[in-house]
Design a protein around this nucleic acid. Structure first.
Length: 876
RNA sequence: GCCGACGUAGCCCAAACUGAGGCAGAGGCACCAGUUUUAGAAACUGGCGAGUGUGGGUUCAACUCCCACCGUCGGCACCA
């Protein structure tokens, strides 16, 4: 389309004098000026504001929302540069792209600032947001700013509370006294996910166990669905994230079995994944915290000893270093349990290696086939009976006497944990483990002493936090009515303006009497509010749904808006959220589906986990993640000021594949600027001639192009193919390399703007416009500037610029260089037409002089011809 | 200890490790030389480089497949 001058409607923007300012382009590249100009243009034209439009395909590009700490760091810059590149690419491909941003603005640093410096958390937070928003705008990220949200806004956290009530109604939110993970440094509770490995996810402090009354969300109800749902996202998520989630959920198939305690009516239930080994059970081992213990010991003479031991175990467990393993210790309770399969009586022990939190808190000990039980049996000289035999030769050989059901403890040196065939197992002997597991579970169920069972490692999500700066849990405690949910119409339960931030003990809200004291929504009597607030991971579990409809005051979001935009097509963030945030948000999605808000199961189709940005630590030579304490941080603002946002972003995308660590290098940025400058000055040299050539719309015929012009066109179309592929697989670094190649090809093309033939100018314009368009996702400001200089009005977005299309015919090589090997060693190359037949290629290769010099005097045994690829001559 | 990922020029990274074995180099940084400059920087021009962590095997042919080992990183860690 030739463009017309706005002022005089002359077809050529170059010839019209009024329009000279439209295409005004500085001779030199001044990033600051270009970036300011286009940021302003974008804002004025609403370039990135999008609406539901059923006629257009939508694309949801999402970056993990930042915590407003006050300053962007390079990790943010990397995150947003990736997201912006994808957004621009999809827009140029004709998609209706939603690209929003917001703030994870509840959380403890704001409260820490309040404790330390007496500032109001809200003021602190909002000031930080203001500063960081400015930084993002200077980066020129293409957000639809009208959709910005902040977790600490009552209009937002109202809906956290609303969801809580919906879950409470459905029994998905509940309160219980439980042993929780307590971070002594932050003085608050942590969820299981947040205390993984026994340390606080944020400060690394070793967590303690405490008994506290807490609110939980029943994530375990969705354990199986969270597992099953992975099939749907398998292709779009990194394998290791799925593996981590799978491990975390920890599904385990096995069976429950009840062991009668001799002389009582009590039964102890165990969970086992190896019911096939039950004939080898030599004891029942219970956790020290087991609830049946007290009752069973009532009449036992050993009661004081056993209780003393149990208390000791509980005490040491509490102060155990993370990752540290205690030596196995146990005590015989003197009681006997009856093996429901064999009828045999076996002792009941208490031991420190059995955990109350997993399974049933009791296990059957089978030392011959379980390493832990083996170790335990060795220590206490318990008998060891082998009941599984080796069935294949690659299974490890464990020395045994291989006969009878006798004690093997003198012979076996380790447990045999593989599956095999049952031996010494009564009527079950001879069966394979796999079959026995199924059949024995069925048998136990039929006879009323057990059943097949599945357990999960996943625990319910504890969301109570003893904190001020979070969404209040909308619950009231009434003397008369008990736990009463706040009615929906009274939401939000607002945080008070101020509170005393002592930094110790209970939530600061407990000290704000006008907050705590309220009336019961049911009976109207005086009542007290819940003073804990919600884990901030609640806010981030559904924020990207809210972006679709951020102003809605009736509902968290409209079903229609979400149905159009969601699920997220591309999510980009750090690997550190692989389990916590990404598991919670999947849970939340399934919950929202079940309350009828949405109709899909998985919130995120494709996930990209970006690598860290590292910098050398002065004096050590080590590359570490940028941080204040190490003094190796780099301020994005300084970089933008020195090199421009475009160069910073280009470098960040070019320096490494997105999943890899990115090593910061100032020299690398300089390289990026140099490249932009090269492209820019090329456009400068040619823009008058090329925007003039716009009048000549039609493509010259193939014969009109010179040989070099055809080569340039080939390069152009090949590059378009490559970069389009790279984008689909998110290989930004190789895209940039390809752009540099194309730019080099342009420089190598020998033509002068004034003297160039029409066909040469056409080839150059094609190459240059493609280059500029494909550069836009990496360096949008300067690309806009160059696009305009090449004679296009309205900007890339509002002017409806489209990603270039590759013509495969033009991209195809006219000649192929085929390597010829002799005995696998490269000896020559021959030039042939791409469509050459196998037979011809073979003949040409064999008659090649260099090849001949290696084959003469030898017998040709074989000639391998790989069409389009190579020829290998095998000689003797 | 268990599970997973990864090892290519001085460095970051390519080459279909993706369902398929087929010329190890696209690009950048650094380095060297030249042009320009009072000098430096910048810019431009031209150069420099590894046989793919190690050792075996399969094959006409292995970065690619198989086996063993070494190293780095990450996750889990008494989960029955």
């Amino acid at each position: 389309m030739p463009s017309r001058c706005f002022a005089c409607a002359l077809l050529s923007v170059v010839k019209c004098r009024e329009s000279v300012k439209v295409i005004a382009m500085d001779e030199k590249y001044f990033p600051e000026k270009v970036e300011e100009k286009w940021q302003q243009r974008w804002e004025e034209s609403g370039a990135f504001e999008v609406y539901v439009d059923e006629a257009k395909p939508e694309f949801y590009c999402l970056e993990m929302l930042p915590y407003p700490s006050g300053f962007l760091h390079m990790g943010h810059v990397r995150n947003y540069s990736i997201g912006d590149a994808i957004s621009w690419y999809k827009r140029l491909r004709g998609f209706n792209v939603i690209h929003p941003i917001g703030w994870d603005s509840f959380g403890q640093p704001a409260e820490q600032a309040a404790i330390k410096r007496g500032v109001n958390p809200r003021d602190w937070t909002e000031e930080n947001i203001g500063h960081m928003r400015g930084q993002m705008k200077r980066l020129g990220i293409s957000y639809d700013w009208r959709r910005e949200i902040a977790a600490h806004a009552p209009e937002y956290y109202k809906w956290d509370q609303w969801f809580f009530l919906k879950m409470y109604e459905r029994g998905l939110a509940y309160r219980k006294m439980s042993q929780i993970n307590w971070c002594p440094r932050e003085e608050t509770v942590l969820s299981n996910e947040q205390s993984s490995g026994g340390v606080c996810w944020r400060c690394g402090t070793q967590v303690e166990k405490r008994d506290l009354e807490q609110w939980f969300l029943r994530t375990t109800r969705y354990a199986q669905q969270l597992l099953d749902g992975m099939k749907e996202i398998e292709t779009g998520w990194p394998e290791r994230v799925l593996t981590m989630q799978r491990n975390w959920i920890g599904r385990s198939e096995g069976a429950y079995l009840d062991f009668q305690i001799k002389g009582t009516e009590e039964r102890v239930r165990v969970f086992t994944t190896r019911i096939d080994t039950i004939y080898g059970a030599n004891a029942i081992v219970m956790a020290a915290e087991h609830t049946l213990l007290a009752k069973l010991l009532e009449n036992s003479q050993l009661k004081p000893d056993v209780e003393r031991f149990a208390e000791k175990v509980r005490a040491t467990r509490r102060r155990l270093e993370p990752g540290e393993e205690e030596a196995k210790e146990g005590i015989n309770t003197g009681m006997l349990a009856i093996n429901p399969f064999s009828g045999e009586s076996i002792p009941v022990w208490i031991a420190n290696y059995v955990l109350m939190e997993y399974g049933t808190g009791a296990v059957m000990s089978v030392p011959a086939h379980d390493e832990r039980d083996f170790e335990f049996a060795q220590k206490y000289s318990l008998p060891i009976r082998q009941v599984i035999g080796r069935i294949s030769h690659d299974q490890k050989i464990v020395p045994t006497t291989e006969e009878g059901g006798g004690d093997q403890s003198a012979v076996m040196t380790q447990a045999f944990t593989d599956y095999g065939a049952l031996i010494n197992s009564g009527e079950w002997s001879g069966k394979l483990s796999e079959d026995a597991k199924r059949e024995m579970a069925e048998f136990s169920e039929k006879n009323g002493f057990g059943e097949a069972a599945v357990t999960y490692r996943l625990r319910d999500w504890g969301i109570s936090r003893q904190r001020f700066w979070g969404a209040p849990i909308p619950i009231v405690y009434c003397q008369r009515c008990g736990i009463v949910p706040v009615p929906e119409k009274d939401l939000p339960v607002r945080l008070p303006e101020r509170a005393d931030f002592t930094g110790v003990g209970q939530s600061p809200l407990a000290g704000v009497s006008e907050f705590v004291n309220t009336s019961c929504p049911k009976c109207g009597e005086l009542a007290k509010r819940e003073t804990d607030t919600m884990d901030t991971f609640v806010d981030s579990s559904w924020y990207f749904f809210r972006y679709c409809d951020p102003e809605n005051s009736q509902m968290p979001f409209s079903k229609d808006a979400v149905a159009y935009w969601m699920p997220v097509d591309q999510y980009i963030g750090g690997i550190e959220h692989a389990v916590m945030h990404l598991l919670y948000t999947r849970f939340w999605t399934k919950m929202m589906r079940d309350i009828g808000l949405i109709e899909f199961d998985e919130p995120v189709k494709n996930l990209l986990t970006q690598g860290m940005v590292t910098n050398i630590v002065e004096g050590t030579g080590e590359w570490k993640a940028m941080s204040k304490s190490l003094g190796n941080g780099v301020d994005p603002d300084e970089m933008i000021q020195a090199y421009g946002s475009d160069a910073v972003r280009l470098f960040v995308l070019f320096a490494a594949p997105p999943e890899n660590e990115l090593r910061w290098s100032e020299a690398g940025i300089e390289g990026a600027v140099r490249f932009l400058r090269r492209v820019y000055s090329f456009v400068w040299r040619w823009h008058e001639r090329l925007s003039d050539a716009m009048q000549k719309g039609s493509e010259p015929s193939q014969e009109e192009f010179s040989q070099p012009a055809r080569a340039l066109r080939r390069k152009t179309h090949q590059t378009v193919e490559r970069i389009t592929d790279d984008f689909e697989s998110l290989h930004f670094n190789t895209s940039v390399a390809a752009l540099m190649e194309l730019s080099n090809a342009l420089y190598d093309f020998n033509a002068q703007p004034v003297a160039a033939s029409a066909s040469d100018a056409y080839a150059i314009r094609e190459a240059l416009e493609s280059l500029v368009l494909m550069l836009a996702p990496f360096a949008p400001h300067v690309s806009e500037e160059m696009w305009e200089a090449l004679g296009h009005d309205g900007g890339l977005i509002k002017g409806n610029a489209r990603w270039p299309k590759a013509n495969p015919d033009l991209a195809r090589k006219e000649e192929l260089e085929i390597p010829v090997q002799v005995n696998g060693k490269l000896r020559s190359r021959v030039l042939v037409a791409p469509d050459i037949s196998e037979e011809e290629l073979r003949t040409i290769a064999l008659s090649d002089e260099k090849v001949k010099s290696y084959t003469s005097g030898h017998e040709i045994v074989k000639v391998i011809v790989v069409p389009q690829r190579l020829v290998n001559v095998v000689v003797k």
